[in-house]
Design a protein around this nucleic acid. Structure first.
Lengths: 214, 214
DNA sequence: GATCGATGTTGACACTGGCAACATTGACGA
DNA sequence: TCGTCAATGTTGCCAGTGTCAACATCGATC
């Protein structure tokens, strides 16, 4: 058994990327707690401690993985907004796009629970992502995408301008709450049909809570 | 230095309670990740492994601590509901109580962030708390308290009966979402005044989203 | 061709969860 | 009275983790 294993070169070449890929894979399967330096290094084909040449500590690796997961969320939201059914009535179209955004958020939480949890597991001490981080193809993050939908609602007259300030908080909270309750929390075992009912209820309340009132 | 340390008895006597107290204290300071068997045992004045006589493993201890934290949340909600301002108009009173409930939820998340995170950090594999667990003085958990408020809204005519099914999801999600975003998530550094604005916006959308529409 | 900085490796330490074997104590029955 | 035993607590150990320090390799650059 001499020379059986082809000796890989001493230097990996793209270890940083490999560590990130491994971290993202771990996060997908088991959530943010599983993003562990030694495991990532193993999967990347390097020995532990190699990671320290690319990340100051475990938190820095985790933060980078979180940012990637946030990008994935933003990307799905972009896709679902683009695919929202168009309606002759611009008001109806605008509501449909907001609904598609909310649906995408919850869809991500249920189909990729590990990624969803990781996206929001940014280590303490780190502030939110800097501009340009955690964004989708359009360069916008989930928050930006939501704000754009709300601005559109005001523009087409679906929502009163007085209601606009603070509306992000309400819409975001409602959808984020359902997503976490279903993904992580007490509603984690809710059957799919009931989950759909819950989502409808949430979107309905947001729509009627935000809409221009006579 | 002979006989300086008063030797505590070999058997602790109430180790289970002491472990729980230590766990709750750790959770309060640093959240659920800090609920660690060895630290709890140290703080309780026993050596590691003593804990295994009372909890099968770390998850079982954590679960018991989570349940205590949920009780604390339920208790605060009960208090704030009871203290809600009464109004001659029963409809207004009912809304005030729902608002007090939502406020209490977010208040708990901001004033006791460790406990709040722990309340919802029930280990995977465990289902929600059994009936009678995680409840306040009235024997009701947060979900029960919310359902009672919504039933009351229907009863006094503030909310249409058709809107009642699924309303828990919407109300709970909205408040839970804000609480986690502010406690744990991207809004964790929101200044207090802005947080208050966000809370108002959330409560407002819930109210107008749920209310009987002409 | 020698030097040096960037990158990877090996070895060590302290911490955790968890298993096994042993120690202490109080209750209970012969 | 005394021996037995189950409940409870302890010491010792192992694997896995983050992190520091010392050493190894390699490519670019003078």
């Amino acid at each position: 058994m001499v020379g059986a294993a082809p000796p890989r070169p001493y230097h990996h070449g793209r270890l940083r990327e490999a560590l990130l890929d491994a971290g993202v894979a771990l996060a997908r399967e088991q959530g943010p707690e599983a993003v562990v330096l030694r495991a990532a290094a193993r999967d990347a084909g390097a020995s532990h401690n190699a990671a320290y040449r690319h990340f100051a500590d475990r938190d820095e690796l985790l933060r980078a993985v979180c940012e990637r997961c946030m990008s994935k969320l933003a990307t799905l939201m972009e896709q679902r907004i683009a695919a929202a059914p168009a309606d002759p009535d611009p008001i109806e179209s605008a509501w449909a796009r907001l609904g598609a955004l909310g649906r995408a958020y919850v869809e991500f939480a249920t189909t990729e629970p590990g990624w969803f949890r990781t996206a929001f597991a940014v280590p303490r001490g780190t502030h939110s992502f800097a501009p340009g981080e955690g964004v989708g193809a359009s360069g916008q993050g989930p928050y930006d995408l939501l704000a754009a939908r709300l601005d559109e609602l005001v523009k087409v007259g679906a929502m009163a301008p007085e209601s606009r300030p603070g509306a992000e908080y309400a819409a975001w909270s409602a959808v984020h709450g359902l997503a976490t309750l279903v993904n992580d929390g007490p509603l984690r075992d809710l059957p799919a049909t009931e989950r759909e009912r819950a989502l409808r209820s949430v979107l309905d309340v947001v729509r009627h809570g935000l809409r221009a009132r006579p």
